[in-house]
Amino acid sequence: MSDALKAPILSLILLFAVLGIWEGITPTVKDAAEMTEYELLMGGASQEARVPPPSAIAAKAVEELSDPFYDNGPNDKGIGIQVAYSVYRVLSGYFFAALVAIPLGFLIGMSPLAYKALDPFIQVLRPISPLAWMPLALFVIKDSEASAIFVIFICSIWPMLINTAFGVANVRQDWVNVARTHELSNLKTAATVILPAAAPTILTGMRISIGIAWLVIVAAEMLVGGTGVGYYVWNEWNNLDLTSVIFSILVIGVVGMLLDTIFAQVQKVVAYHE
């Protein structure tokens, strides 16, 4: 048997072993057959919130995924709609960030002067937790939807900016010199020589950014509420419904993985070998 086949089989065995142990050690709680009124009002032993067994989570997943787009009013929507809201916010914030970061990164990478002038700002702004911007954004922008998008913007801009600058600055000087001997304009050099040469580094930055954006959107939505997968987690947490919380954690993981996979594919397209 080849290694390519062995690895997934090993993964599956590991998964089922962990789930089996989890299921096994989760105690099943039964209520007493006859409860006094006090016990009824206390909810009985079975009502208490506790970590659910994997079978309960699987059942919850089947229930949620069989009707992912239901809409019972503004505060209760299916998981599919929630994920769509989150992805929409992430992509719009991310799009604006790319629009700013890539041209600015080009500028910084091509001009050592611009690099030196902007570096202090980048170094101060970059380490700020995106959520720290939230109260300020809510106050200044006066719109919670736009604030959430702004937070995504501000967190995804830095890896793209820095990677673009780095990629552009490190394009082999020989290639730029060749372009110069062909008397290409600066703009044409940037588009036909530097961009393709720096593309893999830029894409790495974009891939890091989308990962961060997805991490941040969940926290931002827990704060602002309304819609999105972060709100879904918060709403279920309020109800101490751990089954739904774990289910949504899995959904967040899977969507994050899909977003990353898309960028990994694009990265392959622009890669080159010298």
Binding site: G73, P74, N75, S144, L223, V224, G225, G226, W234
Partner: peptide, 11 residues
Amino acid sequence: VDVIKTAGWAV
């Protein structure tokens, strides 16, 4: 009227 659930009073 849409009644919208809010996370807390600051929000």
